[in-house]
Write a protein that binds this DNA or RNA. Sequence first.
DNA 1: TTAGCTTCTTAAACCAGCTTAAGTTTTTTC
DNA 2: GAAAAAACTTAAGCTGGTTTAAGAAGCTAA
Lengths: 210, 210
Amino acid sequence: MPIFMADNSNDRMSIQLINHISKHVSIGKKDLESVAGFFTPVQAKKKEDLVTEGMHCRYNYFVVKGCLRMFFLTEAGTEQTIQFALENWWMTDLEAFNKSRNASFTVQAIEPCELLAIDKTSTEKMLAMHPIMERYFRMIYERAYSASLSRIQYIFQFSKEDFYLHFSNTYPEFVQRIPQKILASFLGFTPEYLSELRGKRVKAGKAGKD
Amino acid sequence: MPIFMADNSNDRMSIQLINHISKHVSIGKKDLESVAGFFTPVQAKKKEDLVTEGMHCRYNYFVVKGCLRMFFLTEAGTEQTIQFALENWWMTDLEAFNKSRNASFTVQAIEPCELLAIDKTSTEKMLAMHPIMERYFRMIYERAYSASLSRIQYIFQFSKEDFYLHFSNTYPEFVQRIPQKILASFLGFTPEYLSELRGKRVKAGKAGKD
DNA sequence: TTAGCTTCTTAAACCAGCTTAAGTTTTTTC
DNA sequence: GAAAAAACTTAAGCTGGTTTAAGAAGCTAA
C-alpha cells in the first residue's frame, strides 16, 4: 500500500501541479488552490505497485518526482512495459479508472516517487466545480494520445536494433537511470538481445562513458 | 482536393455530429446548432488524401460516413497504417493540426466518405464560445488514448499470426471491407505473409463464407 | 560479510516472418 | 471491352531476433 503523506507535504507538492496547470490554462489563484485540495499526496517506494493488473483502479496519479512505468503480463508470463511517466506526467489505467473496471495494466514505481492522487468521484467534483480543468485535461490527453501514436510509429519504423539506438541516443540519461531489463521490456525484446546489442556497441567503440 | 459540399448537405450530416455530442455531454439545442455551424461538409473519394505527410495539416475531420486510415511511409518506402476511423470517429494529425507543423502522417479515405471538417481557428472560436465542448473533446481524446494503448498492448502481446486471427475474429465485417494490403500494413507484416496465413486457414477449414 | 536473489553476459541452435521472384486474378481506365 | 495497373498467391531461401543454458557480477538483507 502506498503511504499517504501528512498534510504539510501537500503544499510543496501541490505547487508543482499548480505550476503545470498554469502553463496550460488561464486560471486564478483561488481556483488553483481549490483544485489542489482535491488531491492527496502519496509516497511510493521503488517497485511498489500503484495500480495492479486485475484489481480495482482507484486513483489517477500526477508525478511530482520520480518515475512510473505501466506494464502488463504477456501470456508467456513476461512483463511488457507500455510507457513511462516522469515529472509532470499523469498515469493510471484510464479505462479502468473511468469505467470502474479492473485494471488491464500495472502501474509501478521504478524509483522512489512523490505523487498526487485523485479518485474518480473527486475528479468529477473537481471538474464540475472548475470547468476550466476540462480544457487542461483535454490538452493533456491530446498530448498523451499523440505520444502514443508516435510510439506506434517508432515500433513499426525501426528494426529492434535501430529502435534501441534511437531511444538511447534520444534519452541517454534516462537509459542510464533504469534497469536494462525494463528497457528491454519497453523496446519489445529480450534482455539477452539487449545485452548483445550493448556488447556490439562497446566493441565498436561507440559507447558513452560509464 | 476534397470537394466542399453545398450547404444543404450540412443539415443531414450535422445531425450525426449533434447526436454524437449529445451522447457525451449535456448541451442545449441552440448551442448544438451553433457548434455545427463551425463545420464544413466535405466529400472524399476513395484513395483521396485529406492530410498529406510533409504538408500543412489544416483540418480535423469527423467521419459521418465511410472509413479513413492514417499511415506513414517507412524508410523502406512501404506504407505503415497506424489506425482507422469509422463513423463517429475523429481523425487528423493532431500534433501537426495543433502546432501548425507539417504532418507526420497521411490521412486517406479507404472508401468514399462524408466528413465534417474544422480548422484550428474555428476550433478555438468554437471552444471559447462553447466551453462544454472542452469536456466533449476531453472524453474523445481519453478514449482515443486508451485505444492507442490497447493497440500497443496487442502489438506486443500477440505473434503476428495470432494478431491477425484476433483482429479478424473481432472485426470480421471490417476485414471483408478493406483491401488485404492495407490490413497487412496495419497488422505490421507483408501482404505475402498475410496471404500465406489466409491460405493456411482456408486449408484447415476454418474460413468463413465468402 | 556472507548467503541468496536478481540482473547481466555470452554463445549456440533454432524459427517466425521477410525477401525475392514469378504467376494469377481483380480492378481501373480509356 | 481491351489493355494496363494494381492486388493477391505461392514457394524457396534467408536472417533478425528468440530460446535455452550456464556462468559472472551486483544488490539486499540478516
